[in-house]
Design a protein around this nucleic acid. Structure first.
Lengths: 110, 110
DNA sequence: ATTTACAGTTACCTTTTGGTAACCAGTTAC
DNA sequence: GTAACTGGTTACCAAAAGGTAACTGTAAAT
C-alpha cells in the first residue's frame, strides 16, 4: 500500500541526503574539512579512530559524489589535499545545526 | 599525537549527535514522527524498505536514548504508539536542515 | 646501504547490520 | 473452528562495514 505519505527513498529529501552523507564517518570528515583544505594525514590525525583504509574509501565516495575535491601534487613524498567543493559547502547549514545540537545538549560546560 | 584539533568522539558535537541518530534509518524514523505520533504499523508502512525486525531494533534504541516514547495500550489486537519526546523534538532544526537541503538539491521540480 | 616521509593498496579476518520466514498471544469476525 | 488482526520475537543466514598488518613507490636525509 503506497500512499502519498509513504517514504520513497528516491523522493524523500532526508533519504536523499542520507545516501550521500549517511555513513558513520562522512559527516565528521566533512566537519573536519568545513573551513580548511586538509592533507590525508591531517584528516587521519584529527579522526584517529578511523582506519586509513576506511578513510580512503570514504574520501573516494565523497569525491565520487561531488562533495569534496582531491588535489594531488606531483611531489615526493606525495602530497594530497582534500577540500569541500561548492556542493559540499552547501551542506554547511546541516553540519552547523548538527554541531549546534551537540553543543547545546552535551557540551554546555566544557 | 593528540592536539586540541583532534576529533574526540566524546567531545566532538557532531560525533555525539551521530552516536544517537547516526544509523541508516534513525533520521528517517524521526522524520516520520516529526509531526505526529504513529503506530508501529504506520511507521512500517511509511518506510516499506525497512524490515520489521530492524524497525523494532531501531525504535528500541531511540527509546533507550530518550528520543522517542512508546505508549502501549492494553487492547486486542495490540496498539502501540510512538512519538517524539521533548528531547527528540529538539532535533527538529537538524532534521529541517536535512530536509531543506534534500529539497533544494534534488527535488526542486517535483 | 638504510631509514624516513606520505598516501595510499592489498589480503585477510571480524564485527555489525540487515534480511527472511516462522512463530506467538488474545479477541473478534466469519 | 478457523482465520485475521497487531506488534512484536526468534533462529538462522547473507551482506556490508570496518579493522589489522604488510606492502608499494620515489626522493632525500643519515
Amino acid at each position: 500500500m503506497v500512499t502519498k505519505e509513504t517514504i520513497n527513498e528516491l523522493k524523500c529529501p532526508v533519504s536523499i541526503l542520507l545516501q550521500l552523507i549517511g555513513g558513520k564517518w562522512k559527516p565528521i570528515i566533512l566537519y573536519v574539512l568545513r573551513s580548511n583544505k586538509r592533507r590525508f594525514g591531517e584528516i587521519s590525525a584529527r579522526i584517529p579512530t578511523i582506519s586509513r583504509k576506511v578513510l580512503t574509501e570514504q574520501l573516494k565516495e565523497l569525491e565520487r559524489d561531488g562533495l569534496i575535491e582531491r588535489k594531488q601534487f606531483k611531489e615526493i613524498p606525495p602530497r594530497v589535499e582534500y577540500s569541500l567543493t561548492e556542493f559540499g559547502k552547501s551542506l554547511a547549514p546541516v553540519l552547523n545545526e548538527m554541531e549546534k545540537w551537540g553543543n547545546e545538549n552535551f557540551l554546555k560546560n566544557q
